[in-house]
Structures are given as C-alpha cells and as structure tokens.
Nucleic acid binder design. Structure first.
Lengths: 234, 234
DNA sequence: GTGGCAGAATTGTCGGACAGTCCGATTATC
DNA sequence: GATAATCGGACTGTCCGACAATTCTGCCAC
C-alpha cells in the first residue's frame, strides 16, 4: 500500500527561509504590524544572498503574510485579508471547470446561513452597506455589468453582516464564479431584474427586523429563483 | 467625498510579469501540462533580468499555477489543487483569531450539505474512503492526535464524496481550525469517542443507502453534538 | 528497444552594482 | 517656536555576470 521509502524532496533555500519566517509569524514571534528587517539584514542573518531572500519574501507576500502600506518601503507583517486569499480560491475553482450546479449547491449551503446570522448580529454600519448595494442595483441595473457587480456586492454585504469570518471567507470565492452565470440570467430573462430587486428588499427587511428565520428563507428562495432563471434557456 | 486624483500605484516589474503569465494561463493560451519557457528565455522575451523573472515565477508557484513534477527541472502549468489553496485560507483564518462559534456555524452550513450530496452521488471508491476513515477512527482512537486526524479525514471524505468541488474547497479550510477544538473535546469528554463513532456509522449508513435527507440530518446532529461537547467545559 | 554516455541546457545561488525613492535629521525661514 | 526646505543614509527594484549541480537530449553500442 504505502511505499517503503519516502521520496526525498530537497527544499531550496528560498523555500526554507520562507517557511522559517512564516513560522515566526504564525507563532506570533513576529506580530502583526511589526516591520521586517531589511533584505540586506535578513540576508546577513540567514547567511544567504539577497536575491534568495527576495524570492522567499515574494512567497510570503503572496500569502498575504507580508505587505506594505501605500508608499511605504519597508515590509511589515500583515494579516491576510479575506479578499486577497479568496481570489486564489476563485482562480483555482475557475481553472477546474466548476459547473453551475456545483456553484449553486454551495450557494444554497452558505448564503442562507449568512443571511440568518446577519439578521441576528448585523450592526448599523453593515445594515447601511446592505442598503447601499440594493440601492445601487435599483439605480444602475440598466447595464448588465454593473447590475451583476451590484448583486455580488449585495451577497458580500450579507456575508460581512453575518459577523462570521469563516462564512465570509467561504462566500467570497463564490462571487467570481457567480459573474458569468448571473450575467447570462440577467441578459436573457426579462423579469430577472425585478425579481432580484424584490428578493433583496425582502431579505434586507428581514435582516433589519432581526427576523433570522425569515432572512434565511427569503435567501433560500432567492437562490432557488436564480437557478430557475438559469435553467430557463430558450 | 471622493478625491480628485487617484493614488498612482506602480506595479513592480515582477508583478506585471506574474500577471501577464497568469493571464495566459487563465485564458488557456498556456494550457495545463504545458512546459514554461526557461527562465533565460522568459527574461529575453520580457526584456528583463532573470532575477526579475524568478521573482515573478515564485508568485505563480505559490498560487499553484506553476509547479514541477517530482525531480523535474522545468516548470509546467498546473491546476491549483484544493489542498494547496485551502491551506492558505486556513492560515488566514487562524491568524485572524477565529472563534469556535464562527467555525461551528460554518460547519453547520457546509458539512450537512456535503453529506446530503454525498448520499446522492457517492461512488464506490468514495464509499470506501469513508469507510476507511471510520475504521481508522475506531481502531486508532486511543491516541488523541490520531483520533483527531481520523475525524478530519472523515469530514474530508464526505466532502470529496459530495462530488462538488466548490463544497469540498469550502470545507477544506475548516479542517485545520477544527483540530484544536476537537482535540479539546476528545480529551475532556469521556464519551466523545463513542458518540463520534456512532455518528459516523449512522452517516455512513445513510450515504451508503443513498438516503440524502437522513445523511443531512445525522450530520447536523453530529455537529450539534460536537458543540455540546465543546461547551461542556468543567 | 534498452542502456549508457558526453555535452548542452537549466536551475539555484552567489557577488557586486546602481538608480530611484523613502526616512530622519539638520538647517533655513517666517 | 513652528513650519518649510535640504541633505545624507538606508532600502528596494533591477541589472549584470558567474558557477556548481542537476536534468535533458541526442547519439552510440548492444
């Protein structure tokens, strides 16, 4: 079953260095906001060339563990932001040819839950975010592109209002996948706009009134409706 | 409200190059399995130094868009694997101090759905994967570490059996977060092992018989039970 | 076809270099 | 005294050239 010998994989220096730095960050020896030593200094500490350090740093930068403020030169330890991380997941899914069905099932699992918790915990600011997205959809839905963007914004706002980072981070990758399907529905189904608008209104109302069960149910219906619109291809 | 001028952000060369290569991959000009030109060649094509190319390549490698077969020298275009991508999400969440409640809510959203679809679509091989995980838990649950690992394997197997990549990729990051909480429960609650075992048996049975509603319900109960065990801290 | 081999190609790493920019301190100005 | 201009040092982004180790490739023998 399992091999007797494990293949020995040599880790190049830049990978080992990346791992070491990452470990310091995860174990919080390097804490969020701390500035990293300069590349020259790191090169000295690790006893390698600066080029090698730079390659290691690139990895951590991509992971979102290191970053710099706008216009700043020095790198500092940062918390990986959901958006940054989720974009990687999105790309992975897009490249793996996700079907509409897969996307829809995941939405059915995540979005209603997000709506439910949003109704329980939304802050005033988050409520405003929701309202904004909805207003934008109402006002700018003539162009398909902006309409789709507004819908995505709505879902994101719901996830944010749920006050649950895990749900929010699970929801985020769905957005990118959603775009093509949603574009198609809005383009082809005449009544799509009004139905989406009505659904958003109901969901927002339920979240505003903190009626979590209703919020969940309306969101479920909204997403079922989305599938109906998608399946309706003439 | 909004500024007159947007801040100009200069993208360093290595980032631009990474983006260009990424675009070729996403638009499938470079297809999965294709070998990338050598670093020297890329440097010539982009008109930059090889060091710059290397930094760009590191980014794409981290994203999982480039990789190499074991012992191979040349890089080739690869599909980002769920595991690789999800580990980044896990780390992001861990660094953001996710609470047990957040994790639990997300599990309640995703795992029952995964179980439900698994019951509808599981293949024979996936069924075996489930059984294996369950057997391993039964047999090796004396040590807390291996017991936890077996539980994680079970959840992963369910997600895989769901035949839904999006759900699977949403579920994967939960595993790492699950470990500390689960360890605590198994360590402190004497009857945890037997309850988990019973729950797994019921879920597997439902999936085997393709009873999707039951699979979902049992999984819900399983996860509710997990929370009960966690809240029970003496 | 299989196996072996020499030479070419490629990667990982190194050292050094330089322009552009950011930062902190110092000096000049009101 | 507070603010503005100035200046030197530090740091990053990029380049050049180089070399050992390993992989790839075409060729030859069997």
């Amino acid at each position: 079953m399992s091999d007797l010998f494990a293949p020995l994989d040599d880790h190049p220096a830049y990978r080992q260095i990346a791992n070491q730095i990452e470990q310091r960050i995860v174990e919080r020896t390097l804490r969020t906001g701390d500035a990293l030593p300069s590349e020259t200094d790191l090169a000295r500490q690790f006893g390698v060339n600066r080029s090698t350090i730079r390659e290691a740093i690139r990895e951590l930068e991509v992971h979102g563990l290191l970053g710099r403020e706008r216009g700043e030169k020095r790198l500092r330890v940062t918390r990986p932001e959901p958006r940054r991380v989720s974009s990687g997941v999105s790309r992975a899914l897009a490249l793996n040819d996700v079907t509409f069905m897969e996307l829809w099932e995941a939405m059915m699992a995540i979005e209603p839950a997000a709506a439910q918790y949003a109704a329980l915990r939304r802050s005033a600011g988050q409520m405003r975010g929701l309202a904004n997205a909805s207003v934008r959809f109402k006002r700018e839905s003539t162009d398909t592109g902006t309409a789709v963007a507004a819908v995505v914004e709505f879902f994101t706002a719901v996830a944010a209002a749920s006050g649950n980072q895990v749900l929010a981070l699970s929801q985020a990758p769905l957005n990118l996948l959603l775009v093509p399907a949603l574009t198609q529905v809005i383009d082809r189904v005449p009544q799509a706009r009004s139905r989406i608008q009505a659904a958003q209104d109901r969901i927002i109302e339920a979240i505003k009134l903190k009626k979590s069960d209703q919020a969940r149910v309306w969101m479920e219906k909204h997403i079922r409706d989305f599938k109906r619109g998608y399946d309706l291809k003439p």
